[in-house]
Structure formats: C-alpha cells, structure tokens
Design a protein around this nucleic acid. Structure first.
Ligand SMILES: Nc1ccn([C@H]2C[C@H](O)[C@@H](COP(=O)(O)OP(=O)(O)OP(=O)(O)O)O2)c(=O)n1
Ligand SMILES: [Mg+2]
Length: 655
DNA sequence: GCGGATCAG
DNA sequence: ATGGCTGATCCGC
C-alpha cells in the first residue's frame, strides 16, 4: 500500500471450465487490458487469446511462480481487511460527526477546484518508438522494414524487455515491461506465423535529446512547465492565455497548435489532457491517444460527471493491486468511491483514504502549485535517493557476488560524484534466481559517496542476506540481481535552505509567478546524468533477439496476474463478491432508511476517535496545501519532491 | 529506522 | 531458456 491505494485481491477461484471466458474477462478487468490505464483500441486481438498465450508461455517459469506467490499474499491481505471491515460493521458504525467531517472535506475539495481548464499535460505517443520514426525523418531514411512502413507492422523498442510498442504491436497485447520472448510469441501465434515482431534498439541518449527539443517548444507556452519524465510535461497555460491573442484565447486551439508545432518541428506526435487541475489533465491525456487531446470543462457538474464514470484504475496512483483491493469492496469507478466515501476512512489509512476521497470527486488542484516549478536546473534537485541495480547470470560464490556488487558500486559512485551527492544510508537489494527479493539497509553517521565505502557496507548487507537465506530451507542463495541504493543525503550548499523556503513562499504569494529558475540548492554541478542504456561497459551488446540479460517487472504483473487468475478457480471470489454485495445492499438500505445510527461505544477497532484522527491528518494535509516539507537531515531544508502527484497538483489560487 | 509492497514511466 | 531499471511513497513493526 503506498500512497494512493492499497493492496488488493479478489481473484478467487472457480471451476475454470465452466467460466473460462467469464474468468478471462473478469481477470482482464483486474488487469491491464480492460480496465487498465490503457485504452483498448479497435482491431485488437481478443484479450482472452492474448491472456491464454501469455499464460502458456509463463507457466512453469520461476518468474511466474513468484508472481503467483505475491498475488496470493496480496489476496490474503485483502481478505483480512475485508473481514476486519465487516466485523466492524462498515461505515454504519461511523459517528455522524465523522460523516459530517468527511462531507465538509469533500465540499472543500469541490469548492476549491480551479475554475478554469488551463492545466495541460502533454504525453508523447509511444515515445521511444516515435523517436525512432523521427530519426528516420531527420536522417532521410525510410521508416520501413522489408518494404513495409513500420507503423503497419508490430514493432517494439527493447530486446529482452519491451520498453514500448507501437500501436500495431499493441493490438497483439504487446506492451511496456513485457518480456521480449512473450511479445514475440504473441505476435507469432496471433498472426498464425505470418507476422514477426520487430525489435528496435533503445537509444536513451537520443530520446533525451528529442525530449529536450519538445520541452523547449513547450516552454514557450509555459516557461515554468514541469517535466515528470522524458515524455511527460505539465503545463499551466493561464499566463499564456491571458497574455494575448494566441488562438483567440481558446485553450483547445492553443493546445492543438502547440501539438502541431511539436509534430512539425520534432516529428513526434503527442496527446494532451486539458483540465482544471494537473491530475485531471493527466487522466485526460490518455483518453484520446494517440495524437489527440481531451478537454475537460471546468465546473463541479462537469467534473463530477466525468469522475462518476471513471474507472478507479485511471486515477494515477491506483495500480493493479489497488484496483483489485477496491474491487473487493465493490468499488470499481469513482462514483462508487464517492458512494462509499465514509467506508474509505474505515478501510484505509489516512494518506490513502485522503487520496481516495479526493479521487472520488476529482478534488485536486485546490492546493497551491508546487513551486518546484523552479527546478529547471535539473530534476535531481529534490532527489532523495540514488541507486543502481543489475541483473546477471545467477551467481552464489562469494567472490562472484562480490565482483558483481563491485561493478554496481562502481557505477553508483560515479553517478554520485557526478551529481555531487553523499548519503548516509546504504540499502542493498538482492534478487534470488527464484525472483524473491530482499533488501537490507544500514544508516550510518557519515555521508558517503565513494565506491569503496559504499561497497564495504553493501557487501556486509549482502552477506547478511546470504546467511539468512542459507538458514532457510525454502530458498537457495543464487542471485540474479544486485542493487545498491544510497539516500539520506547530506544537506548541501549551506544557507540555501532558508532562502529556498522563502522562495517557495514567495511564489505562492505571487501566484505561481514566474520567478526565475536557477537558484537551487544544488551545490554541485550539474548533472545531466541519465542512466544511459548501459553504455560504456560493452558487455550488453545485446541486440534484438537478445538472450542473456533481460528481466522484467511489474506492469506485466498484470499479465501474470491474469494468467494466475486464469489458472486459479474463481468461485471463492464469486462467493465473496456476492456476500459483499449482499451486505452492501443491506447496509445501504439501512443507511437510507434510518439515516444512520450512532451506536455509541464503538467497540469496533476503528472508533470515532481514530477516524477523527485520520480526518485530522487529512485536514492538515489540506491546510498545508499538500506541500511536502521534507526536511533533509538537520538542515531543515525544505524541498519539493518530484513525485507525480507533486507534478500534478496544480495551484488552486492561480486563476 | 527497517523492510516489504506498490506505483510510475 | 528467456522476465529491466530508477526513484518515490506508504505502512506495519
Ligand atoms: N515500464 C516502462 C514504461 C515506459 N518506459 C519508457 C518507454 C516509453 O516509450 C516511455 C514513456 O512511457 P509511456 O507510459 O508514456 O508510454 P509510451 O509513451 O511509450 O506510450 P503511450 O502512447 O501510451 O504514452 O517510457 C519504460 O522504459 N518502462
Ligand atoms: Mg507516452
């Protein structure tokens, strides 16, 4: 459970035979295809077929086995939470004061949303792939393969791991974070052997250049724009629109022209979301992809209508597990989230509950803008940690492990030096060949950045894991990945702290004005780091069809999930779902009819007291404008964090 | 402070 | 046979 959501489960079991299709559909809803963030495009192959292939390729692999284990764990947690919730009687036990408090909060969110749709989120389409196409244009070469235009055939960027896919490939279910070999199978099988997936090599350096090029264009519209990743930009058009005549002041026209410029000058298409707040704009940016835009008119009615139909999974921060979790409580879209807003506070902890409450009414943007906009100097500004991790052929001998760890530390040391960072906490990450992950950390009193110092600590931590693993009979100490992270940075550039705080304050007062960027605490120099592919060390020459390295990750957990869901029986979930619905109906009835009863001495674990506490927390968050004050060490320096939420929280007062 | 889980791109 | 990497947050203990 992280921020916005929590864990989830719900895919129970059922006799797979009778409800195979139903199970498939159901599972895919919990996954990425149906209700994931992505949109299902026309011409796609049946998701049941896609899922079946993924399952077939996956079953039996260590990776898949581990995914199943993880899924079962999350399911258990969901069950626990559900039982606890039911035992406590749900929100019917909530005191009226608490309910009133929640509603007051909701009102506040709804009333303070910005009154105009001037926030724009630009998200590049199939970014890495589009860059490859752009390159052909720039170099005058043909964007085709064996006489066929790349857009007409399934293409991905990445070999062992898919970084992104073009839209043709997406029809086959090929997506980011999918293992290359599975992507190949999807295309081969679904096309009955007629089509072969084309893999392009990743070129991070080039993507960074294109990204900068796009940024420079967008900065003409908002010099304070914020960039969340190479392909995502957060723009506030308020000033630009007020300035004068562009597009007769119509946001949609301005954005349309803006995108046209990016296309013409960078040869890259992008999509945009236009809304009163950045979070909403972010959600909208996905609705008319590719090469499209979606405008969400301001106003409570407009936004409530929009949110009502919105699947929770579309809310940034609600991932696969959270979606499942919510679904277990009968919550699939934001209307249901709103209907159950009281329950939310009984089910989740403060951060999560507050986040979901906002989501239920699209209540973002009321706070102040994250003046972190001033971080033009480099995104590392508010960086809190730095890490390196590498996958390799499994090793176990101390010397081999050590050797791999050294490589990691070497790289980490270089990056830290380049960024002028020093931290006092070292965290070692170990992934066994079975995909079981361990992390062990040690917080020291001195800040380090030297490869040797870091290695020394990391090595001890890894050996600690070795001992723990060897002490168990269910695991084998064969590791496929080693990672090292350093955080708890020292406060640098003395004196910067206070001024920065004032700086933020000033920005707020002046209404997000364009105070120049530049300052920055960042004593060091400048970065420009970038992770590169893996460059220097030739090692991974790695081309398409690669074989060695490769690895994967979540995102596809969805597929795994899915696969797992297929292989598992569904009756359990079904039953629980029914029971829950039943209970919900009863509760709802009770609610509407007799309003709500106070039942005094709540012996439920969650008393009004606890609830009040959670509300209180949320109030505090509100008052602080959700601005994160992260004191970096004793310096008491305040820095804005570059999380997606900070990026998205638009300024309320700015009108 | 630590470790696991989740999320995002 | 083959399943990445970087950075961040939340929560329970
Ligand atoms: N798990 C992931 C997801 C994305 N990326 C990289 C490749 C993408 O091209 C880029 C942008 O990510 P998006 O999620 O925006 O995906 P795309 O831009 O590729 O496609 P879309 O058109 O859906 O935005 O980030 C990655 O390396 N690993
Ligand atoms: Mg994109």
């Amino acid at each position: 459970m992280n921020h916005p959501s929590s864990s989830g489960s719900g895919d129970g079991e059922k006799s797979k035979d009778s409800v195979e299709v139903d199970a498939t559909t159901r599972a895919s809803n919990l996954l990425v295809y149906g209700s994931g963030k992505g949109n299902q495009q026309q011409g796609s192959f049946p998701k049941e077929d896609i899922s079946a292939i993924i399952l077939r390729c996956s079953s039996g692999s260590d990776y898949f086995r581990q995914q199943v284990v993880k899924d079962e764990k999350s399911n258990e947690r969901i069950e626990e939470m559900k039982m606890k919730f039911e035992k406590e009687g749900g929100s019917s036990r909530l005191g009226s004061a608490a309910k009133t408090g929640i509603d007051l909060l909701v009102d506040k969110y709804r009333r303070s949303r910005p009154r105009e749709s001037n926030k724009v989120v630009i998200d590049m389409d199939s970014f890495y792939y589009s860059c490859a196409l752009a390159r052909h244009k720039e170099e005058g070469t043909q964007p085709s393969h064996q006489g066929v235009h790349l857009n007409q055939m399934p293409v991905v960027v990445g070999g062992g791991m898919i970084l992104t896919s073009n839209y043709e490939a997406r029809k086959y279910g090929v997506r980011s974070a999918m293992a290359g070999f599975i992507a190949d199978k999807l295309v081969a099988e679904l096309s009955k052997g007629k089509v072969k997936l084309l893999h392009l090599k990743s070129d991070h350096k080039y993507y960074a250049e294109k990204s900068a090029q796009v940024r420079s264009i967008l900065e003409e519209y908002d010099p304070n724009l914020k960039q969340y990743s190479l392909d995502e930009f957060y723009i506030d058009l308020t000033a630009h629109l007020a300035k004068s005549g562009d597009g007769s002041g119509d946001v949609q026209e301005v954005v349309s022209k803006m995108r046209a410029r990016v296309l013409e000058e960078c040869f890259l298409s992008c999509s945009a979301g236009i809304a009163p707040s950045s979070v909403l704009a972010k959600i909208c940016s996905d609705l008319n992809k590719p090469d499209g835009q979606y405008h969400l008119p301001p106003g409570d009615d407009s936004i409530m209508d929009f949110m009502r139909q919105l699947d929770c999974r579309k809310v940034p921060g609600v991932g696969r597990v959270s979606q499942k979790f919510l679904a277990a409580f009968g919550i699939e879209n934001c209307a249901e989230l709103y209907a159950r807003r009281y329950d939310i506070f009984k089910i989740f902890k403060e951060k999560t509950a507050g986040f979901l409450l906002r989501a239920s009414v699209g209540g973002w943007g009321g706070e102040d803008e994250d003046s972190a906009a001033s971080f033009g100097a480099g995104e590392d500004q508010g960086q809190k940690g730095i890490s390196i991790e590498r996958t390799f052929n499994p090793v176990w001998k101390r010397e081999d492990v050590s050797s791999q760890l050294e490589r990691v530390c070497e790289r980490l040391g270089q990056n830290m030096a380049r960024k002028g960072l020093r931290g006092r906490r070292i965290t070692a990450k170990v992934k066994l060949a079975s995909y079981v992950v361990f992390s062990r950390s040690k917080t020291g009193r001195v800040h380090m950045n030297e490869k040797e110092e870091i290695f020394k600590v990391a090595d001890e931590l890894v050996e600690r894991v070795r001992k723990e693993v060897e002490a168990r009979d269910d695991l084998e100490f064969k590791i496929r990945l080693l990672g090292v992270r350093v955080d708890e940075f020292e406060v640098k550039g003395g004196g910067g702290g206070g001024s920065i705080e004032k700086f933020f304050k000033k920005v707020e007062e002046e209404g997000g004005g364009g105070v120049g960027r530049g300052e920055e605490v960042r004593g060091g120099e400048e970065d420009d780091d970038e992770e590169e592919e893996d460059d220097e060390v030739e090692d991974d020459e790695e081309v398409m069809l690669s074989l060695s390295q490769s690895q994967q990750d979540s995102e596809h957990v969805d597929d795994w999930k899915f696969a797992k869901a297929l292989q598992v029986r569904y009756d359990e979930e079904q039953k629980q779902f029914e029971r829950m619905k039943e209970r919900e109906r009863e509760r709802e009835q009770e609610d509407t009819s007799k309003s709500r009863k106070e039942l005094g001495g709540g012996k439920g674990k969650l008393t009004d007291e606890e609830l009040a506490r959670r509300l209180q927390k949320e109030e505090e968050l509100w008052d602080r404008g959700r601005k994160r004050k992260d004191k970096t060490a004793k310096g008491g320096e305040v820095k804005k964090q570059k999380t997606i939420f900070d990026m998205m929280n638009g300024k309320g007062k700015g009108k």
